[in-house]
Design a binder for these strands. Structure first.
Length: 318
DNA sequence: AAGTAGGAGGGTT
DNA sequence: AACCCTCCTACTT
């Protein structure tokens, strides 16, 4: 087990010295939450393969310790805009212009970062059926979020240290208190919570009167508009995962999207995600696959014509 | 050893 | 009643 790229997100970098950012930061958290924001995105970049974006953003090269693990770590072509930061700053006269350009590109990257983070949080909300704002979480929601975060970022299992805590309690805790409850990974969990708090704060601030963001999912502070509290079906859950190859492609992916054929690449992880979603800690692939097989009779999922292990097909692909 | 198939019983909604 | 969850045996890869 645990076959999938160990240590990818066992971040040794802790607090990164980020350049002071131009993004807003919640007034509730005096100690710059934005680094956490970026930190989180760096995680994603490294777990996905868009490492180029980290090049110009003050990332201190991860101390090279992560190199050569699993993936070949291809050296991608550098982003010309961002790369201007490190190169071509020799001439004094160009300095002003370069800085200007740099600022502009930084803004672009930052807005991209924010957009990606918001999207991922939105996905997680749907998947976990929890509110976007951590303050609104029940103790059960908190446990779900911690389980999911542990899973997503391969943190040590520390959820039990935070039992009986509501989202409000959690949000009131400092990083030190997190570490007190969980010396291993408490700081990272706190950083992730900061990201969620920041996102919730930004959202609240973004749409006081007029709401442009009806399309995504959250219109007001109330999130679950479509399927609030509704029991999600397994096939829906699988489709949601498949819609996010960026996040879940390592676990489940399309083999032929048009025909609805997909493959479960990591049965244990998919089962675990499903278990988190349904509050079934004992969920495993044996049980999950039994539920999939129930779909045969109902005509929702079937085995493809050429049957392969861990490969299924939606009968009515959309 | 892990995945596939489907019966059976129970729980939650 | 629908939709799993759990446990099970038998069979295949």
């Amino acid at each position: 087990m645990g076959s999938a790229s160990p240590g990818l997100t066992a971040l040794p970098h802790g607090r990164l010295a980020q350049p002071d950012a131009t993004l807003p930061s919640p007034p509730t958290t005096p100690e710059q939450p934005l680094p956490a924001f970026c930190l989180h995105y760096f995680d994603m970049l490294y777990s996905e393969d868009i490492a180029w974006a980290t090049k110009g953003m003050g990332e201190p090269s991860q101390s090279g310790a992560q190199e050569g693990r699993g993936e070949p770590q291809k050296e991608p072509e550098q982003c010309p805009i961002i790369d201007s930061q490190g190169l071509g700053l020799g001439a004094e006269g160009d300095l002003q212009a370069s800085l200007h350009l740099e600022e502009h590109s930084l803004e672009q990257v930052q807005s991209m970062v924010v957009g990606e983070v918001l999207k991922d949080i939105e996905t997680a909300c749907k998947l976990l059926n929890i509110a976007a704002d951590p303050v609104d979480w029940s103790p059960g929601n908190v446990q779900k979020w911690i389980l999911w975060t542990e899973h997503q970022y391969r943190l040590p299992q520390i959820g039990k240290s935070f039992q009986e805590l509501s989202g409000k309690d959690l949000c009131a805790m400092s990083e030190e208190q997190f570490c007190q409850r969980s010396p291993a990974g408490g700081d990272i969990l706190h950083a992730h919570l900061d990201i969620w708090k920041s996102a919730a704060w930004m959202k609240e601030k973004a749409a006081p009167g007029d709401m442009r963001y009806c399309d995504a999912s959250w219109v007001d502070s109330e999130v679950d508009s479509s399927c609030a509290g509704q029991p999600i079906h397994l096939w829906q859950f699988l489709k949601e995962l498949l819609l996010k190859p960026h996040n879940y492609g390592r676990f489940i992916r399309w083999l032929n999207k048009e025909k609805g054929i997909f493959k479960i690449e990591d049965s244990a992880q998919v089962a675990r995600l499903w278990g988190i979603r349904k509050n079934r800690p004992a969920m495993n692939y044996d049980k999950l696959s039994r539920s999939i097989r129930q779909y045969y009779k109902k005509g929702i999922i079937r085995k493809p014509d050429i049957s392969q292990r861990l490969v299924y097909q939606f009968v009515h692909p959309v």
